[in-house]
Computed example of a mutant assay.
Amino acid sequence: MENGIESIFKSFLEPKEVYKGGKNIPAGINKKIYKLSSNENPIGQSPKATEALIKAAHDVAIYPDQTDIRLREALVDDFQGQLHVNQFLCGNSGSEVIDMILRAFINEGDEVIYSNPCFLPYSVFSRWYGAKQVDIRLKNSDYALDVDGILNAITDRTKIIFLTSPNNPTGTYVPKSVLEDFLNRVPKNIIIVFDEVYRHFADAPDYVTALPYVLAEHNVIGINSFSKTYGLAGLRIGYCYTTQKIATYIRQIHKPFLLPLTSIEAGIGALKDKEFVAETVRTVQVGRKFLAKAFDELGIKYWPSQGNFFIIDPPLPEFEFTDFLMNEGVMVRPVSQFGAPGKVRITVGTQEANEALVEALKKIKPHPKG
């Protein structure tokens, strides 16, 4: 008969789905490779962030700030004073902020609702804390949120519902009217985690962030990251904002010295660089239109996107398609792991990268998928 510790080991050693990030460009390749597989910033990183990072590098022999207060103060300025400094929480990436929220609210047997295809950590991280995972899939035809499906799945054990807008990997979003209808119908004791890390790229007239609903005191948490718009993926900076009551509760498990000095300084510098943000958004939105037009002309099925990427139905089986493009110098990402089997996600790049992708796509001779 197994003792308790052996049972725990057995449980954790059983094969389980784990989150794997996008691959880097393989070493030893001499030709130019355009990396359109990880939704990274197409034009690099904020110059003001780089300047702050270089300056901070001279002080890494000393401990960083004990708290994230200076970065939170910079976020207050970025949000034009609409939120109090105590409504923000920062962490090492948006993923860690998600983990922190789950640690704060989830106990064994609680339920977490999410909607595949979506960001895998919602399910992987919630499993770590013993949550029952409830997947109410996006509607397959247009990847729209199944509001009624989510509401019907709620039980007295439901603690957290994840919503994502724009959604990774589909690029779809939750329109304002849909979100408001949902918030008016969902029980008030449930935490809504609204992942909006791609919010800067959205230009739909009815797109909305979590901000107005946090200001209205809904139990909503807006998740954000410095990896996309600010080009700081390598520094792993994320944050969330919410009501003071929720933020104060979560802050009880916030570790001291959590953020490196370099990340704090680069994040503050990036928030000051409005010109870089504007250029990033312009590059993505122009590139998005260029690729959508090219996909239409080539007969490639894609879904309209509000992010800095597209999900497509490739003209070849997914791994044959990604291998073909890699041989042509373009990296893209299959997204079966995100709950979209057979589909491929393509990041919007620079105009040069986008043109290289289109030229590679023109060389494909489709055949029936096996």
Rank of each mutant, 00 (worst) to 15 (best):
S11P: 11
S11Q: 14
K16Y: 01
K16E: 02
K16A: 01
E17A: 07
V18D: 09
V18F: 02
G21A: 08
G22C: 07
K23A: 11
K23D: 06
N24A: 09
A27P: 03
G28Y: 12
I29L: 10
I29E: 08
K31W: 03
K32H: 14
I33G: 12
S38L: 03
E40R: 15
E40G: 15
E40K: 15
N41Q: 05
N41P: 11
N41C: 09
Q45C: 06
Q45G: 04
Q45K: 14
S46C: 11
K48T: 05
A49F: 08
E51A: 13
E51Q: 15
E51L: 15
A52G: 06
A52L: 02
L53H: 01
I54Y: 08
V60N: 15
A61D: 08
I62L: 13
Y63K: 14
P64H: 14
P64R: 15
D68N: 05
R70M: 02
E73W: 03
L75A: 03
D78C: 11
Q80M: 05
Q82G: 01
Q82N: 07
L83M: 08
L83N: 06
Q87V: 05
F88L: 12
L89E: 09
N92G: 14
N92D: 10
S93R: 01
E96I: 14
E96A: 14
I101A: 00
A104Q: 08
I106C: 07
I106S: 01
N107T: 12
E108D: 12
